[in-house]
């Protein structure tokens, strides 16, 4: 049995998200193939070939794959997937966009966002904003799966020695065209891969007050996140949002500042290794899941944290 993983990359770098799917795939099969559909993506192919556990890297090089439009990616995947029992991608926006299109044309169900593998056809996945874990069995012959990255460790990005094979490309669908990508410019680590995250909620009261969060995040080398309440209030852009309707994160340290702990927020961060929370309301639900809680006024506490980190020599700046 073989797993085909659709790799995510930007033609120069293999995205770390894909490494989590490799680990999930190892629970299902010995043979793991990685599809790199892109354009001039030699560096990605090289780094994919040494990922631990990957046995073959399939390369489809064409200008039409420079941006992974679902309309062009789907025929390519369909052209090779009869050889596979499992077709898998990480449940990023890219994987979520692409995989149901593949599943529908194979006439199979997709198993979305799996967080556990019980056996070769039985999987666990969170539903109801993470309030429920469903155990589902797939009766389809090919299983199309998206993987919740935070539920599986990243495979080592060295030590592997995969065969590299070029495959035939498929024609441009002509149905859709990439126009532009506006990347959120930030010197900070990306939310989904950061080891430390400092997140602000409605308690921050304004977007300007996020400078207090920035001061702490800078010292910790952390990414900045926010609750949906803070996004809805317009304090910060939507791509800061952590939660069921935003990003799902699992950093080593999650610092929740002025976040009450709505269910939908907890669904996005409760797998963090250590959670510390600061809130002036001692009844805030966030304290029920936090490893360390401090009842305090965040406008006093945040500058104190920055000062204390400097004093203890813990600041990274």
């Amino acid at each position: 049995m073989t797993v085909l993983i659709i790799a995510e990359h930007n033609n120069s770098e293999l995205k770390r998200a894909t490494l989590h799917s490799v680990t999930a795939a190892r629970a299902l099969a010995e043979e793991i193939h990685l599809l790199i559909a892109g354009h001039n993506a030699q560096e990605v192919v090289q780094s994919a070939s040494i990922v631990s556990g990957v046995t073959k890297v399939l390369v489809a090089d064409d200008i039409i794959y420079e941006h992974p439009l679902a309309e062009n990616m789907t025929p390519l995947i369909l052209s090779i997937c009869e050889n596979y029992k499992y077709v898998m991608a990480t449940a990023t926006t890219e994987g979520k966009n692409l995989m149901p299109r593949v599943a529908a044309l194979l006439d199979v169900a997709q198993i979305s966002d799996i967080s556990g593998i019980l056996d070769k056809e039985t999987f666990q996945r969170p539903t109801y904003a993470g309030n429920v874990i469903s155990t589902v069995k797939s009766i389809d012959s090919i299983k199309v799966i998206t993987v919740r990255a935070t539920a599986f460790d990243a495979a080592a990005n060295n030590g592997g020695n995969a065969i590299i094979e070029n495959i035939s490309t498929t024609p441009d669908s002509g149905k859709s065209k990439f126009l532009r990508l506006d990347v959120s410019a930030s010197e900070r680590p990306e939310l989904t891969s950061a080891t430390t995250i400092v997140s602000g909620g409605r308690g921050m009261q304004s977007g300007e007050n996020f400078v207090l969060i920035e001061a702490v995040a800078d010292r910790l080398g952390a990414a900045i996140g926010a609750s949906r309440a803070a996004v809805d209030a317009g304090f910060v852009p939507n791509d800061y949002q952590v939660g069921q309707t935003g990003k799902v994160v699992a950093p080593t340290l999650y610092l929740a500042i002025g976040i009450s702990g709505a269910i939908q927020h907890l669904a996005g961060m409760k797998d963090s290794k250590v959670i510390a929370a600061i809130n002036k309301d001692e009844e805030a639900p966030i304290f029920q899941i936090a490893d360390y809680g401090l009842v305090a006024d965040l406008f006093k506490a945040l500058p104190e944290i920055a000062e204390e980190l400097d004093k203890q020599g813990l600041s990274k700046t």
């Binding site: 941006h67 439009l69 990023t92 926006t93 890219e94 002509g174 149905k175 859709s176 065209k177 990439f178 126009l179 532009r180 990508l181 506006d182 990347v183 959120s184 990306e190 989904t192 939507n238 791509d239 990003k247």
Partner: peptide
């Protein structure tokens, strides 16, 4: 809304 930013595409 994609991870890390905003992507604009045109579709038929």
């Amino acid at each position: 809304e994609v991870d890390g930013g905003l992507e604009t595409i045109s579709i038929n």
